[in-house]
Amino acid sequence: MLLSIKNLHASINGKEILKGITLDVNQGEVHAIMGPNGTGKSTLASVIAGREVFDVTAGEVIYKGKNLLKLAVEERAREGIFLGFQYPVEIPGVSITNFMRTAVNEIRKYKGLDPLGGGAFLKLMEEKKKLVELTSNLANRSVNEGFSGGEKKKNEIFQMAMLEPTLAILDETDSGLDIDALRVVANGVNKLRTKDNAFMVITHYQRLLDYIVPDFVHVLFEGRIVKSGTKELALELEEKGYDWIRKEQEGKGIAG
């Protein structure tokens, strides 16, 4: 088991967002996390990545046999957890090359490897740019500064390719993308899929799952996973809408 989440509760400023998440992810699997706005999808991603604004109030997260919640943000990243951001932040004046080189070499240092020299690093960048079909000279620009929505998301996928994570969490990577950009992003993910890594793809829409075919689909509602299934569940959701889930839950009397 790569990731095992048990009864995870998390809150922000005293408001509980995650109300008992349980989820297992194995290597080689792609899990889609779906659900309406404000149900805790991004919170789940943030908590796994270690964002400090969220307080974990109960439950446990075991990653590679370790208590993930005890690791610092950067330790989680160095252990192979990657978060593709929904809203990647701008860092003026810092080129993507410089940014990535710092990241790659810090991770290498953690693993006891020598830092990559300039030449080797640039070669790696070229390889990965090709892999994710990054044609523009994005790498020379400041991190996310003045990028279009599509460029920002492609840049996230490019960074994922550079860092070769074991567990990649993509937080609504499809939002704001036109169909071509969506395809580029999805192709990148598909090329990076191996039997050794796993993906958690957070999305609103079934659309992305036409390109990234998930092994499992989970529906998150009011801070809990209320339904799990295979890719067919996504199609059913697309057809019936989230109201279907809402009504079902209200029927159980736990909504609100």
Binding site: A72, R76, A77, I91, P92, V94, F99, T102, A103
Partner: peptide
């Protein structure tokens, strides 16, 4: 911003490197 720090740390950098990187970017001109 906390967002910038988190972004860098999520890519494996410790807070020190992250601040160094951000500050140098700011002063680049």
């Amino acid at each position: 911003s906390e967002d910038q720090l988190f972004y860098c740390q999520q890519r494996g950098m410790n807070a020190e490197s992250a601040i160094g990187l951000i500050v140098n970017g700011y002063a680049k001109e």
